[in-house]
Amino acid sequence: MQDLKVVEDNRMQKLLIGLLLDGIGMISFSIPLIGEFSDVIWAPVAAFIMTRMYKGRVGRVASILTFVEEIIPFTDVIPSFTLTWIYTYFFQKTKQLQ
């Protein structure tokens, strides 16, 4: 029972961190010109963080998608960390049960 609580805490921690990181990624969208330039710095940082948050194939694929999403102008509104969290804890779990 104790292990279940640790897993639940880890989920919520990843969700809150993901929401914060998505917010940081979206901030650059609100600053014209300078914001898009900052994506050159933020894209590799976000991709690196994604690989640390989610291990294995999910982390590798999500980090590539996050990098592409952050580096392409005007796509900063896509919440890649939150979408990865949803995929990991809802869709992937359902797939494993089948």
Rank of each mutant, 00 (worst) to 15 (best):
M1V: 09
M1S: 13
M1P: 09
Q2H: 12
Q2L: 12
Q2Y: 13
D3Y: 14
D3F: 14
D3G: 12
L4W: 10
V7Y: 14
E8P: 07
D9T: 12
D9R: 13
N10H: 13
R11P: 06
R11A: 11
R11S: 11
Q13A: 15
K14H: 09
K14I: 09
L15G: 13
L16V: 15
L16A: 15
L16K: 14
I17W: 11
I17D: 07
G18L: 11
G18N: 10
G18T: 07
L19E: 04
L19K: 06
L20S: 12
L21P: 06
L21Q: 06
D22L: 09
D22P: 02
G23L: 10
G23V: 01
G25Y: 02
G25T: 00
I27W: 11
I27M: 13
S30K: 08
P32N: 01
P32D: 00
L33R: 09
F37G: 03
S38A: 15
D39S: 14
V40W: 02
I41M: 09
W42I: 12
P44M: 06
V45R: 07
A47F: 04
I49L: 15
I49V: 15
I49T: 01
I49F: 01
I49P: 05
T51D: 09
T51P: 06
M53L: 15
M53T: 02
Y54E: 02
Y54Q: 04
Y54L: 00
Y54C: 01
K55G: 09
K55C: 04
K55Q: 15
G56P: 10
G56N: 10
G56F: 03
R57F: 07
V58L: 12
G59Y: 03
R60I: 08
R60E: 09
R60Q: 11
V61I: 14
A62H: 02
A62M: 10
S63P: 05
I64Y: 00
F67D: 00
V68R: 03
V68Q: 04
E69Q: 11
E69Y: 06
I71G: 02
I71D: 04
I72S: 00
F74K: 08
D76V: 01
V77D: 04
V77G: 04
V77Y: 13
I78G: 05
I78Q: 00
S80Y: 05
T82M: 13
L83W: 01
T84S: 00
T84W: 02
W85T: 06
W85S: 03
I86E: 03
Y87M: 01
Y87P: 07
T88W: 03
T88R: 11
Y89A: 03
F90P: 00
F90E: 07
F90M: 08
F91R: 02
Q92W: 05
K93H: 08
T94K: 14
T94Q: 12
K95M: 10
K95Y: 13
K95G: 04
Q96T: 09
L97P: 00
